[in-house]
Design a protein around this nucleic acid. Structure first.
Length: 728
DNA sequence: CGTGGTTTACATTAG
DNA sequence: GTAAACCACG
């Protein structure tokens, strides 16, 4: 396909700073790739002179692959990757300048929480008042904003001072244990570049072009990082879409788009508004939803692809029904010639995937899940990795605590406490303390010998490691440490799954290709395991339905998309409602979701859903209500009959999902009728008392509701007259 | 004192 | 539904 005029303008623009405002599906990845290929081909620039950065591993991989295809050669050493990936690469190379140990390892959020938990306990703080997660988010927030503990103002209040104290202590621990968390990767890279003139000169000189994808998702430190790398001679191309900013919770600042125009002046702005992906119906829906957000840069997508199918809306009884419906629809699509890989199921939170998986499994539909419980974060994998970490780095207390008694080897809480206390008293790491205690007094002889044999186990494996390939070492660890036996003995299918995963880990080690021939392969593998979700594990090319969160779907496209769980409280998510701008961000997420679909979008929601172990009664997401009604048709599963959405008499009748008014804004007029009544709703009737809705039929004035009252009587009531009041 | 079974609190989104 | 916390037992 040929490029359109604004795309050509972006690709061949002169070497200066450019802001590309690119709507969903407007071919922005293509523009970035073509631009880089153009610079290499037509301007003879070396791949070394370019730096391209994105946010997700998947996007980075895709960009690299497309670029390699475009220029017809491997771009092995080119700086294309995620911010975290590139920062990591920088720190591995310049560890000395960054004040790190060569052996540093990455602390993921799980490890971070554990470390903070220990720290909170060690400081005799109440972990109900100082929740590890909250402290972690404070620390990460500071790092995102580029603030060290000494930048922070103390003396305001106890809570704040304690957080700052914990931040200080935490960074101290990280330093002592050669660990670097995700936020630190970015922050430390920034500081190292900032404070080291010759390094800065080197990189400013090297990179003639910086290309930043998803610019709207950059946070303060990432933005500062880009500014440092850009010299007056550097050309920066920032590509973004303010409507797709969905990482505010991670410190992303949409304002960076505005700041760019100022800080990198003079710039030229190019807008890409022609959408090549979706049908008119889908775009109209997306435009309508996003138009409810204030303060947009403003952008209307258009397409030449034609009207297209209506958006299907299915009101499921519960989440199982929702999953069955999706599975059914997938089979229908396949019958009509779609490939599985043309289809995607998108959801707001990872927890929703389980039920879907279940239904797909039952329907024998191949699928692939992205994200969620990451491979490298699974319990058994993490255990194995922690052994490897301890072999690599004896100072890693997180790893030490994790594996010292897994599998159980007679080292209980008391003994570990002993080691902890000794370590604190001597100001050493746990490993050294354990060594000391095997020869000192204080431990029972039983505990002593258990600790001694653990130390021997690690030392022996480390010695053998010298002559082993990575995968052989992994094999050795899971066998000799007894992980296979330990996890295998778990009851049910779980044991077998865990063994399978451990074997999978060995395969992953075997397949691992180190980037750097000089550095330790184990070190490189462990770093990769922290940075990469490991979701490339199973055959990425297999023809399978793609399951992922809305967040990880950004940048991707599919023929048919199923957007499931379109319910208030779930999407928009309840947790995001109380933060400033949270709802707007959720709406952008809805915009992202809708615009993933090329041909057909199916939206489903469940009237009843088990969430966090509790039954919830869902009402249709406001975002779906914001879609013009002539873009939607309501469908039912059994007969595959579809009806215009507004005229439906199926499913929840008007009292349950109030009738639509021609104008979207009027939707809420029906509120007093009780949005959210549904089967299972608790209601109060003036005469009969309280009860539960169990059935209904008819619509409009004819709507009848069957209520099972608490005294045991069930009655059919005409909703119009019954004056039911919803409870709870 | 350590282990294993049982109860209970807790649950977005990503690198 | 999961993993940490809890408790009774050996």
């Amino acid at each position: 396909m040929l490029l359109n005029p604004p795309q050509i303008e972006a690709v061949t623009a002169p070497s200066k700073n450019i802001l590309v405002i690119a709507g969903a599906g407007s071919g922005k990845t293509r523009v970035l790739v073509e631009r880089m290929a153009y610079l290499m081909r037509d301007h003879g620039l070396s791949p070394h002179a370019l730096l391209a950065v994105t946010f997700t591993n998947k996007a980075a991989r895709e960009m690299r692959e497309r670029l390699e295809k475009a220029v017809g050669r491997s771009l092995y050493s080119m700086w294309v990757g995620t911010f975290h990936g590139l920062a990591h690469r920088f720190l591995r190379t310049h560890w000395k300048d960054a004040g790190l140990s060569e052996q540093f390892l990455i602390l993921d959020s799980d490890d971070q929480n554990r470390m903070l938990k220990r720290l909170i306990a060690a400081n005799n703080l109440d972990d109900a008042k100082f929740k590890p997660r909250a402290v972690a988010s404070f620390i990460n927030g500071c790092k995102d904003e580029g603030q060290r503990h000494h930048h922070l103002q103390t003396g305001r209040d106890y809570y704040n001072d304690t957080l700052i104290h914990l931040y200080t202590a935490y960074d101290e621990q990280c330093r002592a244990q050669n660990l670097v968390d995700f936020g630190e990767l970015l922050f430390r890279t920034f500081e190292t570049l900032r404070d080291n003139q010759s390094l800065k000169d080197h990189y400013q000189d090297r990179f003639r072009h910086l290309l930043i994808d998803e610019f709207q998702d950059t946070n303060t430190i990432q933005y500062a990082w880009i500014r440092l790398l850009a010299s007056p001679k550097t050309a920066v191309m920032a590509v973004g879409d303010d409507d797709q900013s969905i990482y505010g919770w991670r410190g992303a600042k949409i304002e960076n788009i505005h700041r760019f125009a100022k800080d990198f002046a003079p710039i030229s702005t190019i807008r890409l508004e022609q959408n090549y992906r979706s049908t008119e119906v889908i775009l109209r829906a997306a435009n309508a939803v996003i138009s409810n957000n204030p303060d947009r840069l403003g952008k209307e997508l258009w397409t030449e692809r034609g009207t297209g199918d209506l958006i299907s809306l299915y009101a499921a009884f519960n989440e199982q029904d929702e999953a069955r419906f999706v599975a059914n629809r997938i089979n229908a699509s396949i019958d009509q010639g779609r490939r599985y890989s043309d289809l995607a199921i998108l959801y707001r939170s990872n927890a929703q995937s389980r039920v879907l998986e279940d239904a797909l499994l039952r329907a024998a539909i191949p699928y692939r899940i992205y994200g969620g419980q990451r491979f490298y974060e699974r319990l058994e994998i993490k255990n194995a990795l922690m052994y490897l970490r301890l072999i690599q780095n004896r100072f890693d207390d997180t790893a030490f605590e994790r594996v010292i008694n897994v599998p159980p080897r007679g080292i209980g809480e008391k003994t570990i406490d002993h080691i902890r206390t000794d370590a604190r008293d001597e100001g050493s790491g746990l490993w050294e303390a354990a060594n000391r205690l095997t020869t000192a007094d204080g431990l029972s002889s039983r505990a002593k010998s258990a600790v001694a044999s653990f130390i021997t186990l690690i030392e022996t494996m480390d010695q053998k490691a010298l002559d082993l390939d990575l995968f052989e070492l992994a094999r050795l660890v899971i066998d000799t440490a007894g992980l296979i036996a330990h996890h295998g003995s778990e009851k049910g299918e779980r044991g077998q799954t865990r063994i399978d995963n451990l074997n999978e880990l060995v395969s992953a080690c075997r397949a691992f290709e180190p980037e750097d021939d000089e550095a330790s392969v184990l070190l490189q593998f462990l770093s990769q395991a922290s940075l990469d979700a490991g979701d490339t594990q199973a055959d990425p090319d297999a023809d399978a339905v793609q399951l992922m969160t809305l967040h990880s779907a950004k940048g991707l496209e599919f023929q048919d998309v199923f957007l499931v769980g379109a319910e208030e409280e779930l999407f928009p998510h309840r947790m995001s409602m109380d933060s400033a701008g949270g709802l707007e961000e959720e709406r952008r997420l809805a915009y992202v979701g809708v615009t993933r679909a090329m041909s057909h979008l199916t939206v489903t929601y469940a009237e009843s859903r088990r969430l966090n172990g509790r039954e919830h009664y869902g009402i249709l997401s406001r975002f779906i209500k914001e879609i013009p009604e002539d873009c939607i048709e309501e469908v039912r599963l059994e007969s595959q009959i579809s009806r215009p959405f507004g005229a439906s008499s199926f499913g929840a009748a008007p009292a349950f999902r109030p009738q639509r008014h021609p104008r979207v804004k009027n939707w809420d007029d029906s509120v007093d009728y009780g949005i959210g009544f549904g089967i299972g709703s608790r209601v109060d009737h003036g005469l009969f008392g309280e009860g539960t809705v169990v059935d209904f039929e008819g619509s409009g004035p004819q709507l009848k509701v069957k209520v099972k009252f608490d005294d045991g009587d069930a009655k059919w009531l005409v909703a119009q007259y019954a004056k039911l009041v919803q409870l709870g």
